[in-house]
Design a protein around this nucleic acid. Structure first.
Lengths: 210, 210
DNA sequence: CTCGGATTTGAACCGCCAGTCAAGCCAGCA
DNA sequence: TGCTGGCTTGACTGGCGGTTCAAATCCGAG
């Protein structure tokens, strides 16, 4: 059974990925050493390369792993929400860096930037990135389609197109917040994102809840 | 005269910065070696460190230098244009990665991503970045104010705020284009940017020139 | 308990590269 | 022509960190 891995091996694998993602978040890709990851696992450096063929591979896997984790939690939440508006609010809430206390200041977004910079030159990372990104845009489009089916949102532009536009706007705003905590605050980003989304999708922005 | 530098020294300084910017654009910050920069200058590696106290400092200076260069050309162009609409069109044209043939595929934007990733952890870079970014947003706000003074654009939201929003949108879209040449093309970004800008600023989008 | 394979260790290896330095080079000047 | 001081070289080094490996350990099956 060449394709089976022991339970233990799978656990270790995941444990290392998780540790790697944390180290990258904390120190940045460029400053991440194999020994840092090993230390975080409470394990010797040699072991890391017993489970991963090279540091490079590990880093790429760690980056996508972290994103998968996030996406899983996210889509589970989405399924539990009834209205599209609720979904949109939550999506934006989760997209604002540092808004929710349960995340540390340098969160998902820091990893995204690392993904981007790497994807510029590394074809493997580029391909991974494209998949992750398409999935994300798709989620936005799904919310819009859902909203249209319930009558919350009006018909209009192609939902995919809107997913792209809204996604891109959130990206840009998130960078501002992540970089520049002084001028552009998290709550302000939240407000602006919602405003832009409402205008692009074409629904009336009711008196902000929360 | 401690404060004076010979003409020659200044030239060399700049020459090295330029070479560094090119190498970073081509290979990425992480893969840039001092010897690469030296080679590009046709000079020995030792000389690089005669002019810059460390590699780190050089890289930061190179990054801001490249941006300065771009900004200078840009604002010279702006001054020559009469209508705000022309200015806006040109700003967007310059913001779309790879749209203009005179730039190589990996252009300014690749450097921006490097700046971001570095600014996340390096306070010096973070400060530099903030300056560069403010200047850029300011430029957009200036165009809007100009358009309002000539009556091209209607009054409305704070010009600074719009500068932020439009700037962020362009950022996000540019990343898409830079990463993902297949799905989202340069010309499409151009169209979307203009559309979003017109809607946020509130002017009528006339039949597209060009 | 014993064997055998999977896991784990940590020391050793090795290439790489930022930064140093002593020695040459050259231009201007007296 | 020889002196001076800034420029330039390129060999050297010191440390860092990814990778390898032989040995130790662990664990489950028989």
């Amino acid at each position: 059974m060449a394709a089976t891995k022991s339970k233990q091996q799978k656990d270790r694998h995941q444990e290392i990925l998780e540790a790697a993602a944390r180290v990258i978040t904390a120190r940045g890709l460029a400053e991440t050493r194999i020994s840092d990851i090993a230390e975080r696992c409470g394990v010797s450096p040699g072991l890391i390369l017993y489970y991963f063929e090279s540091k490079d591979r590990l880093l790429i896997e760690a980056l996508t792993f972290a994103n998968d984790q996030f996406y899983l939690r996210f889509s589970r939440e989405m399924r539990r929400m009834k209205t599209a508006r609720e979904q949109l609010d939550r999506l934006i809430e989760l997209s604002v860096p540092g808004l929710l206390p349960e995340y540390e200041r340098l969160d998902e977004w820091a990893l995204w930037i690392e993904i981007w910079v790497r994807a510029l030159r590394d074809p493997v990372m580029a391909k991974e990135r494209e998949v992750l990104d398409r999935r994300w845009r798709q989620s936005i489009a799904d919310i819009i389609r859902h909203g249209r089916s319930t009558g919350e949102f009006p018909d209009g532009w192609d939902a995919e197109e809107l997913g792209l536009q809204i996604g891109a706007t959130i990206d840009g705003l998130a960078i501002q917040v992540l970089m520049n905590d002084t001028v552009f605050s998290a709550t302000r980003m939240q407000r602006v994102s919602l405003e832009v989304a409402s205008r692009l999708i074409g629904f009336e922005l009711e008196p902000a809840e929360v």
